[in-house]
Design a protein around this nucleic acid. Structure first.
Lengths: 188, 188
DNA sequence: GAGAGTGACGTCAGGTACTGTCATCACTAT
DNA sequence: ATAGTGATGACAGTACCTGACGTCACTCTC
């Protein structure tokens, strides 16, 4: 006899995503998620720090990808070129998980609490990018500013990519948005 | 006989700030805040949507100031110049409330929950700035990108101003940071 | 292969944030 | 006087989250 079904964490993630999409984040209780996954509420909180975190478990790997891309940029690359490569790489990843990314974003956009959590993940991402730039020898405040700019471009590009479903691929939107940003900051 | 002491909202704000500073946000209960203000927990929640909001009541007026500054910028001003004027004006306001701003920021920095709330206020600010730019005829995505850049500069400048207490005035730090950003985005 | 862990889960009790509902009563307007 | 009105108190209830402890298939050791 197996005592428990495998992959309880995965089942909790699936159950949470389905319920949040179905009836909204606020109208879903942790008890319901746990029941749908065939587990108890207590077990949910052993896998996820809180009710929101279940939607953000993948953000760690995105951060790693960004940091590694910055780290492996050629020495000749400027700080902005390094982070540009990073957000384009992130764009590739999210473009691959297109439908999932869009569904997840719809859920987040519908709940202020989830938007808060998303923003702090992006802030952590900016902080990690700034670290990576400093390791490349970029001084403050240039490192922090470049990192914040990268995240800003990421946010705007992602939002545009989500809203118009029949448009360009995300990496392309990232690059275009960065060019637009350069134009905006140059002309003054 | 007066039935209640006046300015219950103000007393709640004061009590909350003092207790958060003294023993930290997470180690303070709403019941304690209410008791210190001579009120009940229920009354706290009639004045503030939640336990965090008590620290962010002033953010509305900051947002108004930014939006109005953008709106009243001369027609000849570029989008970046308009938001630059706005964050410098915000810098003046915060410089006037220097000690309060710093104490408040120390409390926020110590609590992830409060940082989340701060970030969503900044996001709302970016959104309001983008609206103001669109009313000036700026198209998307330039409006959103410029607004995000403004908030990014604001964040970085404010952080630098807070950490080195014996430095330049905040509006000056804002301007310098914006110049640094221009340098960073131009060189690639 | 018996005994000693070990780790993932369940069960239970409790604290705290937040909400809905109704009562109270100084104050105000007619 | 009388009838509101609005800020507050009192009380009950839900949901998030945590700590403590028990259970038992699995694994490791000798």
């Amino acid at each position: 006899m197996v005592r428990w079904q495998p992959d309880s964490r995965g089942r909790l993630e699936e159950a949470a995503l389905a319920l949040y999409a179905e009836r909204g984040f606020e109208n879903t209780t942790v008890a319901e998620i746990a029941a749908r996954a065939g587990l108890t509420e207590r077990t949910f909180f052993r896998h996820f720090a809180d009710k929101r975190e279940v939607l953000f478990w993948g953000s760690g790997s995105l951060q790693e990808l960004l940091v590694e891309t910055v780290a492996s940029a050629p020495d000749s690359a400027s700080p902005l070129e390094a982070v540009a490569a990073a957000i384009e790489a992130a764009g590739v990843l999210l473009q691959e998980r297109r439908d999932f990314s869009r569904q997840r974003q719809a859920i987040i956009a519908a709940s202020p609490e989830l938007r808060e959590r998303e923003l702090i993940k992006l802030a952590s991402l900016a902080s990690a990018l700034a670290d990576a730039l400093r390791r490349r020898g970029v001084e403050e405040p240039a490192a922090s500013l470049t990192a914040e700019v990268a995240v800003a471009v990421f946010k705007v590009a992602f939002a545009r990519w989500v809203e118009k479903s029949n448009k360009k691929a995300l990496p392309r939107v990232m690059r275009d948005s960065l060019d637009e940003l350069k134009a905006v900051t140059a002309g003054a």
